[in-house]
Simulated scan of single mutants.
Amino acid sequence: MIGPDKALRLAAELAADFARTAARRDAERILPTEELDRLSEAGLLAITVPASHGGADLPASAVAEVIRLLSVADPNIGQIPQSHFAYVRNLRQHGTPALRDRLFAGLLAGKRLGNAQSEAGTRHVRDIRTTLLPRGSGWTLTGRKFYATGALLADWIPVLAHLGADGPLHVAWVERTAPGVEVIDDWDGFGQRTTASGSVVLDEVAVPAEYVTAYDATFGGPQTYGSFAQLLHAAIDAGIARGAVTEAAAFVRRKSRPYPDAAVERAADDPLVVHAFGEVELAVRAAEALLREAAAAVDRADAALSAESAGEASLAVAAARAATTHAALTAAGRLFEVAGTRSAAAGLGLDRHWRNARTHTLHDPAAWKVQRLGRWAVDGVYPPNHGQL
């Protein structure tokens, strides 16, 4: 069984390998199929399977650090399992015993979950049109999803859909290869290019009743489903920030030329360069510290769930999300300021850090995280109880 220390060691070892080919995957848009297989083989995608089913049952703090380590190397690889881990939580809470037995056994054997949640062309991100309609003793699933991160490389796809035309949201668990399921590789974002975030088309897919779990009911009381999912997004951005600083520093040490007025032999000794690195390092360290604090808050809420503990977890994660957004954009943008003209060469692929940061930080507006923190500071009001906080 994988404990926290072993999970972090495995993640760090694999990340070191993944980093060597990250720029090439980005430039040529090579999906990380082999890399995801290695994560599965190492057991890192099964670390939240409950102990009652033979899993490691690791806490949110360990999962967030695994995601951060992977994202330092390649945030595409870090983002793909985010939905995987989020939907494991849904399965733990709402799955029938038979469904949990089957899917948890699959996860322990290396199976992967994707997601089919967001839809294009709707009024907002929580406007869902996909439906589950009655058919015999089960349901038929119809709809079209976009931004379905990881679906191309998944074995099972949890699909968010209304039960009936306008009933509560539920999750339909379908196999990627099931009749009526089509996964299209049509994601063309300029960043996070290899997250396998294409479209999922669902054409009257037959879903047995036991393969449908509650979703809206998750938010009927105190919960950490949203803060956990958002914590992992913060971990991705923290990883992007650290990866950008690390690669920029290596470039400055080895390849940058000093500015003549600095009167130094190395660009790395230019006081303006050193000061800029110090400012970026400050932002990144602050974001990493807030990420650890947020992870601890989610762990505390998981251990003793209440309206107060869940609210404190949401606030801590909101702070981490705002800070990691700032750190990722700052580090990836200022990389070129400190590294100089040579760093802009397309063949180096250093621009991928900014493109990845700019793309992933659009996932949830940081300004709304700050708004929630401000409302707490002014009136002591906890964030709303939904999946994005």
Rank of each mutant, 00 (worst) to 15 (best):
I2L: 15
I2E: 03
A7H: 07
A11F: 10
D17S: 14
F18M: 12
A22P: 14
A22T: 10
R24V: 02
R29E: 10
E35A: 14
D37F: 15
S40P: 10
A46C: 09
V49A: 11
G54M: 06
D57G: 01
A60K: 12
V63Q: 13
V63G: 07
L69R: 11
L70S: 11
A73N: 01
D74F: 06
N76V: 08
Q79F: 13
I80H: 06
I80F: 07
Y87W: 10
L91M: 09
L91A: 06
Q93M: 11
L99S: 08
A109Q: 01
Q117H: 13
Q117K: 14
G121I: 12
G121V: 10
H124C: 11
L133E: 06
P134A: 09
T142D: 10
K145Y: 04
A148H: 05
A148D: 09
T149R: 09
L152I: 11
L152W: 05
L152Q: 13
L153H: 10
L153G: 07
A154D: 04
I157H: 07
H162S: 11
H162K: 13
L163K: 10
W173I: 00
R176D: 03
V181Y: 13
G189P: 04
T195F: 04
T195Y: 06
A196I: 03
G198P: 10
E204Q: 14
Y211H: 14
A214V: 03
D216F: 14
A217S: 13
F228N: 01
A235T: 03
G239A: 01
A241F: 12
R242N: 01
V245Q: 08
A248D: 08
R253M: 12
R254W: 04
S256R: 01
P258D: 13
A263F: 13
D270R: 00
V273Y: 06
V273W: 08
V274G: 02
V274P: 05
A276D: 09
F277E: 00
L290H: 14
R292E: 06
A294R: 09
A296G: 04
V298W: 00
D299W: 08
A304E: 13
A307N: 01
E308Y: 00
E312L: 14
A319S: 09
A322G: 01
A328S: 15
T330N: 12
R334T: 04
E337W: 14
G340A: 12
T341K: 01
S343P: 00
L348P: 00
D351E: 15
D351C: 05
R352I: 04
R352L: 06
R352V: 02
N356T: 10
R358K: 07
A366P: 13
A367R: 02
A367P: 00
K369I: 00
R372T: 03
P383R: 06
H386M: 10
